[in-house]
Design a protein around this nucleic acid. Sequence first.
DNA 1: TGGGTTTATCTGGTCTAACCAGATAGCGCG
DNA 2: CGCGCTATCTGGTTAGACCAGATAAACCCA
Lengths: 239, 239
Amino acid sequence: MNKIDTDFLPTLVAHIVAHARAHGDKAPSERELAEHFAVSRGQVRESLSILESMQIIERRAKSGIYLKPDVAGLDSMALFARAGVPLLPRQIFEAVELRKIHEIKAAELAALRATDDNHSRLRDILDQSAAQLAKGEGLFRLDGAFHLEIVRATQNEMFFKMCQSFYAAAEQRHAVYFRKPERSAKSHSEHLQIFDALIARDAILAQALMNSHLGGAQSYWTELLDEQKAANPLIPPVG
Amino acid sequence: MNKIDTDFLPTLVAHIVAHARAHGDKAPSERELAEHFAVSRGQVRESLSILESMQIIERRAKSGIYLKPDVAGLDSMALFARAGVPLLPRQIFEAVELRKIHEIKAAELAALRATDDNHSRLRDILDQSAAQLAKGEGLFRLDGAFHLEIVRATQNEMFFKMCQSFYAAAEQRHAVYFRKPERSAKSHSEHLQIFDALIARDAILAQALMNSHLGGAQSYWTELLDEQKAANPLIPPVG
DNA sequence: TGGGTTTATCTGGTCTAACCAGATAGCGCG
DNA sequence: CGCGCTATCTGGTTAGACCAGATAAACCCA
């Protein structure tokens, strides 16, 4: 029973969100949370202080804990994803847009700066992807790995960490996306093209290829969100 | 004595960093920290859990608290800045590069999406800047405000929050930069040009102007870091 | 019945005092 | 000198208590 379980935070978030939805943004009290999860109040307070630092909740002295309605940070998004809390369409749109901005530039920089090590890591991922496709399985994790490896090749650690959060937050959605086999195949062939551009150190081409590669994904999400909006104009207020 | 003072975290970080520097990455024990800051161990643990969630420290059960040597996150950078802990040259380089990537794209999107409200906010800032310059004072905060307002005009909240962290982390360095009056004047005139491009909704021009505007800053930092490196090849290991 | 006031309860904020068990270092023995 | 034992330290975790402001329920008066 060492330390607090690493997935206690997501569980806590899920619980708080569920409760807050039904009680006007108000979360259960610290004492209630402690009892519910069978831990001490101290443990709960530690976790809550993290959530507060992420701007997910607000603690009003002597009043209660309130779920903030406008979560937009990178880390908090990833946490919500792990907690299984759906994001607002607006948040997905913003995240997809940001991801595109980042990765297009990453492709350019990667073409210029990638080391042999970066190249071989990318090649490995592509090989695994090919094998996966041959077995009739979707890409999913390998897709994310490929994209992140490109960001790593920019040699900018901060860049890499930021993009990691994007993928952490989008994991579930990507899993859904890659359920259709033809998407995996298309993605893979585009990855191969991008890889060639990186090897050739053609920054312009790499950038352009990444642009169209991600453009497909972006329009996919845009259309999906439009459909959802049309089908259900009442958007649930999701932190 | 409500809650924990909002600047307790920076103070704690500064203390931990100072101690860890001298003791091989090892921070004082929780009990020592509690005594030093005259608070209970619970308070210390709450703060430490936040630092751990930011990847600034590592808590090894029954062993101690260790300062992580490779802090690269956005929030942690901002916290270090508030704590007065200098960043590694590499981190500054990375942050400056990322900031440039973000803001160039922001200028483009802002040209396309800025509302009348965004325009008038920008105009206000420029007016204040002109007044400040007329009084012979440097820009500094108004420079950051202008840049952030452009990001806000992209209508992408997540984008805005991310860039806020950049400025929080860079505040001190910007203060130094703008000590030279001619830099404020140059910056202001470039801001005016960018503003005109935004009003004209010329995304291409806005992007290009922002590129050269930030290019100046980037080369400034690059040169400065090169000088430092030449003068002191021994780079202090700064979280 | 309506409105204002009193009161009892709840809540976060904070502290103290423990216990546990593994990590760690110091000591002593061989 | 090196090995092993032991006392100490450390984070992890809990229980219980007190404070004072926020909150809402109960109450009372007009």
